[in-house]
Computed example of a mutant assay.
Amino acid sequence: MMDKLKIGGVELQNRLFIGTGKFPNKKIIPDVIKSSGSKVITMALRRVDLNSKEENIIEYIPKDCILLPNTSGARNAEEAVRIARLARAMGCGNWVKIEVISDNKYLLPDNYETIKATEILAKEGFVVLPYMSPDLMAAKSLVDAGAAAVMPLGAPIGTNRGLQTKELIRIMIDEIDLPTIVDAGIGKPSHAAEAMEMGAAAVLVNTAIATAGDPVKMAQAFSLGVKAGRLAYLGKFGPERKYAEASSPLTGFLNE
């Protein structure tokens, strides 16, 4: 039986989502997507230029992928809603990643404004994936608002520092009856594997792949890390012990 993730009525076999920002050359993006195996690709709407094929990021994303436009640049719910509506009107589909950020230093999302935007857009038929600071009560409010998944940050965006918010994410995974997708801060395939081992439904990675020495190889490494972490979670870990326990009997040596 295939282990599939279902979001917005769509079944996904690959649990690695990737972004399209920060690449030194857009022409490498198709190879990165192919290497990653990802079928959900996020992009900032401001990078969609319908008047220039070469500059239009959509031109580099395979047609069989799900576009996940994000509301990067929005500072409040009103701006996020406007960007989401523009994305759908431009043919980007009805999936949207809500980003509402007014903090210019750490780029932390505004959970309150994110909840407001999620409620408005969910009622309009969008498949809403809100990017959020990990907080159980905020996550529950997003569920009530109609989110299709919740996307807590692992560390401040672009830092590659890994799961700095691990315990808060663990609580969300345990308590929220929606897919939890770890987004932002994941810097290594081992970080992605760790998130999946915890029970995360998926991870979204951009900076760690885009700024790697070889983005294509790094995308494959992240894909393998996600798969390994998911398999480990499904396999269920053995118990941790305080003291050593031999894996073979300690009796029966030399005719004992």
Rank of each mutant, 00 (worst) to 15 (best):
V203C: 05
L86M: 10
A201P: 03
M137P: 00
A200E: 10
A117Q: 00
V96F: 09
G162F: 11
D135Q: 07
E11W: 04
V32G: 03
F23I: 10
D64A: 14
G185M: 01
T159K: 08
A155E: 08
A44H: 09
Q220T: 06
N160K: 11
A208K: 00
I58P: 10
I171E: 10
E113D: 11
P134M: 14
M90S: 03
G125H: 06
G91S: 07
S72P: 10
G162D: 02
E167P: 07
C65W: 13
D183N: 06
C65A: 12
G19H: 02
D174S: 13
S102T: 14
G8I: 05
F253I: 00
E119V: 02
G93T: 09
E59V: 07
P249F: 00
P249L: 01
G37H: 15
N56M: 03
M196W: 08
K188W: 01
G252A: 08
A44R: 01
G73W: 09
P215C: 15
K27F: 04
I41K: 15
K227P: 07
T42N: 05
L108D: 05
A228G: 06
A184N: 00
V32F: 02
P249Q: 10
A80C: 06
D103K: 00
Y243E: 01
T165Y: 07
M218T: 11
D31F: 13
E124L: 09
V81N: 08
W95P: 03
E124I: 00
D110K: 06
D64I: 06
E124W: 08
P189T: 04
K6Q: 06
